[in-house]
Amino acid sequence: MDNTLLHNQNVIILFFGSISSLIVLIIATLLAIEIIFNWDFNKTDKRQHRLEKNSWLISTIIGFIASIKVILLPYFVFTIDTLSNIVPGAMCGAGVISYNDYGMKLLFIKIVELALIAFWLLLNRYDIKSLYRWIKPKMFLLILIFAISTIQLWFEYHFFEAIDIHKVVNCCSTLYGLLEGMNPLPWGLDRNLLLILFFLLYALILSTYLAKQEYLFTVAVILFSIIAYYSVLYFFAPYIYEQPNHNCPFCMMQKEYHYVGYAVWSLYFIGIFLGIWSIFAQKVLKIDSQISKRYSVTILGIFILLLVGYVLLYYYNNHTFLQEIKSTGMIMDM
């Protein structure tokens, strides 16, 4: 009997999306290589006109790939969550993705790939406005995206191919639960300090945006990305689940929690991405990046409001906040 998940319909759809986007990406990469070697904007000969047309074709291809990848990333998360129903021991996507070494790396590569594609599209926008000033870096970036897409497909195959539906995996409480005496937070932080840092860093993002302090803004965004990740897992997630010892990043994407995880993580990644993009736009492209910063600040603000909303909702319903986990692992209200 075939124990792998390669024949699962969701997995087939994922492969279909990845392979079809890789095929068109091969075409774009070949065109990009020709542009790198032969581009001369001052020329008006047939080849230069053809290269200019090809550069627009590449933009269209990347736009097409972006629209596929933007669907495939949440679909991948949805798929691993769905697979938790047939993989023994898994309660959500966390168990499935941690089945082998490929899973988390694959998710990371998928996020990086999508971020690079978004980066390419933004760079393309400014390249067009500046009459191809960034054409060659853009084409090199395209080759990097091609390489990452290829690696992504390789990881995707090995991840799903290795999953044996008869082998028991760990559930998310084992993977993300707080064990006695163990502190999962970085730099020895406790939950209170984590929460204070979370709000302070957002205040720093907001104030550096208003004061137009580019470098401080970027530092604040990068630090916030780390602190916010842990804050979601170890402070806000329990309020979403209404269980103090439930810290899974995947369960919140399930129907029981109104798929709120998709909103939480989308706001998180888009807000961080725009924050980092803005410093690149300001310092490298030499363009005013206040608009991307404004979007970043706004999106991260919505991210915080959404999370705080769950805390307030819990308080409204229960007239108490969740208490820190006791060493026994018991759930208690304050």
Partner: peptide, 16 residues
Amino acid sequence: TEGLVEVDGVKISKLP
């Protein structure tokens, strides 16, 4: 297919 078209000071055949 080849050559330059400039209109109103803008090289329109080179514009995206």
